[in-house]
Structures are given as structure tokens and as C-alpha cells.
């Protein structure tokens, strides 16, 4: 059995679980009741996908899916830092949802070609389920991008931060070389990141949003190239300043204080009685 499978699938699972948890924090607070239900449903989908990934890992390692999801230390999670960022306002939540689901869509399309049959099948199934997420995210972005001045300004501000952070989704895992060699990952993260940049450039153009929101993201790309292996997690400097590369490190288990508080809440019930059956 491949040793690279578990880390690859765990990173996918952690992305979905942590972002699903953040999305779920909107439940009861959505901008209106219909959106509250729709967004909560998207949160449930992400957590459902996380469950499927954890089960896939568990089936190969003999571990317990619940323990994988909720019984690890914060530094053992491999999600991208963008997933743990607090929701902020609706503009940030929405742009992150938009960026994440487009990134996830590219990733799933690629994973559907994985040589690992179970992973490929799972990716193909999730791709169908992600269609609604894309429709939802695109519909909102389109309306807000062309909407009133304040809404448009807030979406641009949010994108300026979130675009940079979202590239952390394409930060390579330490195990990526093995995963590529074994065909678990059909393509390197760098290829997916380039595809994501191109696709989102075209989308920004269609939405008449300034492509400058990608500006800092481009710097991040250079950052990855120039100092691979020495990626800096955002909060290490501790000065609260956003900088290129600030959202990297997640794939190596480096997370910020945002994740500490999320982890406390998310795992509280499990930690209260790890052996309990639900």
C-alpha cells in the first residue's frame, strides 16, 4: 500500500472539514433566511466530503475516521491556512467560497484521473456534487461585482486578501514527490496553481473586477519558487501584517491562532469522551 495516499487524502479532508466548519458558523446569521439555508447546506456538503475522505484514509490505514477528523493535535492538520481564517464579513466569506470552490473544482478534475481507483471514483462523485457550490458562488459574485459601489468595493477588498491566501491550497505537501511518482496525484500542485491563476484571471475579467487583486498572489508564486522548503506561516512574524506568502505552511501543519480557537470548538465534544459512539 502506498504511504503517500494518507497524507494526500488527509490534506483534502482537512481542507473540507475546516472550511465546512467556518461556513457552518454562518448558520443562523446568514444575510437572509434562504441564503442561511443554502450556505448551511454547502457547509454540510463540505463536511460530508471530509467524512468520505477520512473514511478512505481509514480504510487504508485501519484508523478510525472520527479520530482522524477530531482526535489529532492542531499541528497534525494539513489544511491550507485560507480554510481556517475567520469568516470576517459576508464579502470575505463569499470570495473565499468562490475561490475555494473553483480551486477545488480544478483539483477534483485532476484527481478524477488518479491512478488510485478509489480516490479517482470519489473525486468524480464529488465533482458532481460541487456543481451547486460553483453555481451558488458564481451567481453571488456576479451580482455583487456589478452591484452597488459599496458591495463592489468590499468584494474587491476581500479578494485582495483572499486571493493571496487561496494560493495556499496549492502549496505542495512534503509527500508530493512520492504521490506524483505513484500516480496518486496526476499533476503537480504547481500545474494546478498555474491553471487556477489563468482561470481566475479570465473570470475576474468577465466580472470586470480588477486583476490587480491577483497582484500580490503573483508575488506569492515567486515566493514559493524562490524559497521552497522554507515557507512561512502567516502568524510567525506575529505583527499581524499580511504579506505575500502569509497563508503558506498549512500543508506542513503550521497554523495560526485562528486555528487554535477553531480546533478548540470543533473538537471539544470528541475530546470530552473520545471512545463514545454516536
Amino acid at each position: 500500500m502506498s504511504a503517500a495516499l494518507a497524507p494526500v487524502v488527509l490534506a483534502l479532508a482537512d481542507d473540507e472539514l475546516v472550511l465546512g466548519h467556518r461556513h457552518s458558523e454562518w448558520t443562523g446569521f446568514g444575510p437572509h433566511i434562504e441564503e442561511d439555508i443554502a450556505f448551511s447546506s454547502i457547509a454540510q456538503d463540505e463536511i460530508g466530503h471530509a467524512t468520505a475522505y477520512y473514511r478512505l484514509v481509514a480504510a487504508h490505514t485501519g484508523d478510525d475516521p472520527d479520530r482522524l477528523a477530531l482526535g489529532r493535535a492542531p499541528s497534525e492538520y494539513r489544511h491550507a491556512i485560507v480554510c481556517e481564517r475567520p469568516n470576517g464579513d459576508w464579502a470575505y466569506t463569499l470570495t473565499r467560497h468562490w475561490l475555494y470552490d473553483h480551486a477545488d473544482s480544478l483539483r477534483l478534475a485532476s484527481l478524477a484521473e488518479s491512478k488510485h481507483a478509489d480516490l479517482a471514483a470519489l473525486a468524480a462523485k464529488m465533482r458532481r456534487e460541487e456543481r451547486y457550490h460553483l453555481l451558488h458562488a458564481d451567481a453571488w459574485l456576479e451580482r455583487i461585482a456589478r452591484g452597488p459601489v459599496e458591495a463592489r468595493r468590499r468584494i474587491i477588498d476581500a479578494l485582495t486578501i483572499a486571493f493571496d491566501e487561496a494560493l495556499g491550497l496549492f502549496e505542495p505537501l512534503p509527500e508530493e514527490g512520492d504521490a506524483l511518482a505513484e500516480g496518486i496525484l496526476p499533476e503537480p500542485s504547481e500545474t494546478l496553481r498555474a491553471r487556477f491563476m489563468d482561470e481566475m484571471s479570465a473570470r475576474l475579467e468577465r466580472l470586470e473586477l480588477p486583476r490587480s487583486v491577483q497582484g500580490r498572489a503573483a508575488e506569492t508564486a515567486e515566493f514559493i519558487a524562490s524559497s521552497s522548503g522554507d515557507l512561512i506561516a502567516g502568524d510567525e512574524a506575529g505583527d499581524g501584517v499580511d504579506r505575500p506568502g502569509a497563508a503558506l505552511g498549512g500543508r506542513r501543519g503550521r497554523h495560526g491562532p485562528d486555528f487554535d480557537s477553531l480546533w478548540e470548538v470543533m473538537t471539544a465534544t470528541y475530546r470530552a469522551d473520545p471512545g463514545a459512539s454516536w
Partner: peptide, 20 residues
Amino acid sequence: AVTAPDPELALLMAKECFFR
């Protein structure tokens, strides 16, 4: 019924509210 700014979003909202 749902509240929405246009038919497309109304369909997306209705799907989640009534076809869960």
C-alpha cells in the same frame, strides 16, 4: 416562497429550501 433578487438566484435558493 423565497426572497431573491432575480430568477436565477430564486431557483438556487428554492432548490436548497424545498429540495433538500
